[in-house]
């Protein structure tokens, strides 16, 4: 009997100690409201995207048609795809390295604990936010109009977008870093630069490397898409083949893309595991 009486007692005790326990009905009402709001949001989304699942069913033979026309992939096109594949990787690599080099100094200005002045902090944060807010596709369009078609505008677009993505994460790492070694070295009489290179750098380097390697993986994937707006690489090949209805070349390009993306992902994950 006493065991059965226990739970309500405990609950009463909690309430007495000021633990906020919503009443049985209060909690449920809130839950129902949440579910209702979610369902309304889902309903309007379905209407807005004009979702018609029946079209998928009636159009299934169209898809089957494309798949038969695309298979088997045209392996004779493989040698022609190697150069664009290298271009894609290199756009990602160049963009990441340039992004890291530009994001680092900006991040030092954009971290509250290392910013030399409030005005520079605000400015650096604004630059980083702007680079991030404009999608890399838009940056690529801008750079294509500036420097013409080819891989270079793609590399530039990725660099600038990376500044936005890396700058914020780098600044967060610097803000969250353990300041113990920094203070310890300052008290030994070491100079500012010495403290930076011997305490700050070794403390934050593993995190920064990890973030940069993750970015490399992301950048190789986005450099594929940038080809669609004329920024070279596999994306451009894919677009050309589709426009010419060469579906076997399309499937071959997709195959190469798949291998590339998987390889980049594995490599990045492996390197990140090592620096951690």
């Amino acid at each position: 009997m006493s065991a059965a009486a226990e739970p309500p007692l405990t609950r009463g005790g909690e309430a007495a100690r000021g633990v906020p326990t919503p009443g049985r009905w209060g909690g449920n009402a809130l839950g129902f409201l949440g579910i209702f709001v979610f369902l309304v949001a889902l309903a309007q989304a379905t209407l807005v995207v004009q979702a018609r699942p029946q079209d998928l069913v009636t159009g299934i033979h169209g898809m089957a048609d494309i798949i038969t026309r695309a298979s088997p992939p045209d392996f004779s096109k493989l040698p022609d795809l190697l150069w664009p594949a290298l271009e894609t990787v290199d756009i990602g690599l160049f963009g990441t390295v340039a992004g890291v080099l530009l994001a680092l100094p900006l991040a030092i200005l954009a971290a509250r604990n290392t910013a030399p002045a409030r005005s520079l902090y605000v400015l650096a944060r604004a630059v980083i936010a702007f680079c991030r807010a404009v999608p890399d596709l838009v940056w690529a369009l801008l750079f294509v109009t500036a420097v013409g078609l080819g891989p270079f505008p793609g590399a530039l677009a990725i660099s600038v977008h990376s500044i936005g993505m890396l700058g914020r994460l780098f600044a967060e790492v610097i803000e969250d870093m353990d300041t113990g070694p920094v203070e310890a070295l300052t008290t030994t009489g070491a100079g500012r630069l010495q403290v930076f290179s011997h305490a700050v750098v070794p403390t934050v380097l593993p995190s920064l490397l990890g973030i940069a390697l993750y970015r490399l993986d992301e950048n190789i994937r986005s450099s594929l898409i940038l080809g669609f707006v004329g920024a070279g690489g596999l994306g451009f090949e894919l677009l050309t083949a589709m426009n010419l209805f060469q579906y076997k070349t399309v499937s071959m390009t997709l195959l190469v893309t798949f291998v590339l993306v998987m390889a980049a992902e594995r490599l990045s994950a492996e390197l990140r595991r090592r620096v951690a």
């Binding site: 009489g189 011997h198 070794p202």
Partner: peptide, 24 residues
């Protein structure tokens, strides 16, 4: 100065940490 926490740089060797004391 000796603090409550050792405040060493965990990724560097013990010797490197001691050598940091001579930087000044």
């Amino acid at each position: 100065m000796v603090f409550q926490q050792a405040r060493l740089i965990g990724r560097r060797s013990v010797l490197a940490n001691v050598l940091c004391g001579t930087l000044g």
